[in-house]
């Protein structure tokens, strides 16, 4: 099996990438929640200052804005038409390729 030459792709590369980006868009807020709750651990670190925490939170915030801009930029361009969106959604809904 491994000796076979590359051959045709087993799934379309572009739509696969698009669905993965969508997964990333779904994942982003979850990661963000965890990172936003980190300041609660301040009590365990006597070195942490309010100013430091302020910088951390704003840094996180800027990172979120940048990541979100990148993701939504790609998603908005690719999902130009409602039909395309519909198609992909259907494909995802029947469980063939989502995970």
């Amino acid at each position: 099996m491994s000796a076979q030459r590359p051959g045709p792709l087993f799934l379309a590369r572009s739509s696969f990438r698009r669905r993965r980006l969508r997964d990333a868009a779904r994942m982003l807020p979850i990661v963000a929640v965890v990172l936003m709750l980190l300041p609660l651990l301040k009590g365990g670190d006597p070195e942490a200052t309010t100013a430091g925490m302020l910088l951390y939170l704003f840094g996180l915030w800027i990172a979120l804005v940048v990541l979100s801009a990148l993701l939504s930029g790609v998603l908005a361009i690719e999902d130009d038409t409602a039909e395309a969106l519909q198609r992909d959604e259907d494909r995802g809904a029947d469980g063939t390729e989502r995970g």
Binding site: R22, P29, A32, M36, P39, M53, L57, W61, L67, S68
Partner: peptide, 21 residues
């Protein structure tokens, strides 16, 4: 209340960033 005011803006940020949901 110190940095607590930020929660009022972090919450909407989360919802906006998670717009796909």
């Amino acid at each position: 209340s110190g940095l607590e005011y930020l929660t009022i803006y972090l919450g909407p940020t989360l919802v906006m960033v998670g717009w796909w949901w």
